[in-house]
Design a protein around this nucleic acid. Structure first.
Lengths: 224, 224
DNA sequence: GCATATTTGTCCGTATGTATA
DNA sequence: CTATACATACGGACAAATATG
């Protein structure tokens, strides 16, 4: 499979701010996370570089960045491909989430500011009302990022940003996004309520169950 | 401060395996983590590139990798520097360690294989006997990596590899490495003993105290 | 299995823009 | 303000590996 670059040239307008390689990486990251380049797609230097009007050297720097973020896989002398995650990857991602998300809740001693958490829930409700399942997935991810942010650790934030970006790759190889996101909206709200009222142990418990269920459901439906 | 490249050419022999940029990154990573390039050192493209006999494009790819690992800091149009960590970085690093290392112990349900853990302790003892404090620091780091490895998660392993590599940068701006590593040898042994006997709660508790003490001691002695 | 075309890996030279002495 | 040094980005080159017929 080779990338379709037909209307990619429209993104050229966006490439006029910071470092070229970073901006190219931003464009590609968005395309990948939105499913425009599905897992397994080959990103040929010639086609992408031509469409975005950047040199091969610059493009390769952008590829490096995205490879390090695990969104692309680099095969020697064959090029870069949008990563295809295995069931083992899904298991590992949920292991990390269990440890980090539950750990972030566990270390709380006082009721924190929950602005970001509640905002994500509102976004999720709006998306569900509009039956926009992709937006619901995004809001859901933002909820969990907000929970991790309670730990107030830039390094954990970055880790989780990467892990959740990988998780989007998983969603793109599955059909019917609705069934994977909708039921969790209510559970997010319950977790937020526990946090508001200072019931941290209950919040951690609910989060662990949430993640366990999500992992199980995902693995059950995951292609071989 | 600019990097001394006098005997760097000796490492050219090592550059004959996989991808050039990766090998260059390996050489530089080793140099940095051993303190040959102390924090704050500027790594000029043509000095390093000349000494290692690689092109600027290749070298820049290596710089990208190390920047992403947080060992180098990249300032736009100014070049790359070996990172200087702030007290805030130290605090964040220990926050991550508390969450991940204690979390890795917490999720144990049966006594795991402790080969790597015990090997690291043996290395530490040998290094202490030889009064080789740098080797003691390495063994100590390996002990903690082995604890994280109990979680059996590649992503957590990689996170911790990066975080502990950063921690070495902290050690390099401080004098008297002995006082920072020696007292923890005994405590590592105690934690391992708890793990062997299945006392996971005690192990987690001791680990938390260990990390709290280490952070406190480090911050007290850290330069402004 | 072989020959060819394509694509990547690596490197160079250079023009331009930026920071610092 | 000028001069110097340096990083950024580009385009071109060639060898090596891979894909295709």
């Amino acid at each position: 499979m080779t990338a379709d670059t037909s209307d990619l040239a429209a993104d050229r307008a966006l490439l006029d701010r910071t470092s070229t390689a970073d901006r190219v990486a931003d464009v590609l990251r968005t395309r990948i996370s939105e499913g425009f380049f599905p897992p397994g797609t080959r990103l040929a230097e010639d086609a992408i570089g031509g469409a975005l009007a950047v040199s091969r050297n610059t493009l390769r720097e952008a590829f490096r960045l995205l490879t390090h973020e695990r969104l692309l896989a680099h095969e020697l002398n064959r090029g870069v491909f949008v990563r295809k995650l295995t069931a083992a990857d899904v298991i590992d991602i949920y292991r990390v989430r269990q440890l980090v998300e539950c750990g972030a809740i566990r270390r709380l001693t006082a009721v924190p500011s929950l602005d970001r958490v509640e905002l994500a829930i509102e976004e999720g409700k709006a998306a569900a009302d509009a039956e926009d399942w992709r937006a619901l997935g995004t809001a859901n991810i933002r909820f969990h990022q907000a929970v991790v942010a309670l730990a107030d650790s830039p390094r954990l934030d970055e880790l989780m940003r990467g892990v959740l970006a990988e998780l989007r790759l998983v969603f793109h190889v599955m059909d019917d996004p609705r069934q994977f996101h909708e039921p969790y909206l209510v559970r997010n709200g319950e977790i937020a309520h526990c946090l508001e009222t200072g019931c941290f142990l209950a919040a951690e418990q609910k989060m662990a169950e949430y993640l366990g269920d999500a992992e199980h459901q995902l693995l059950k439906a995951y292609p071989a």
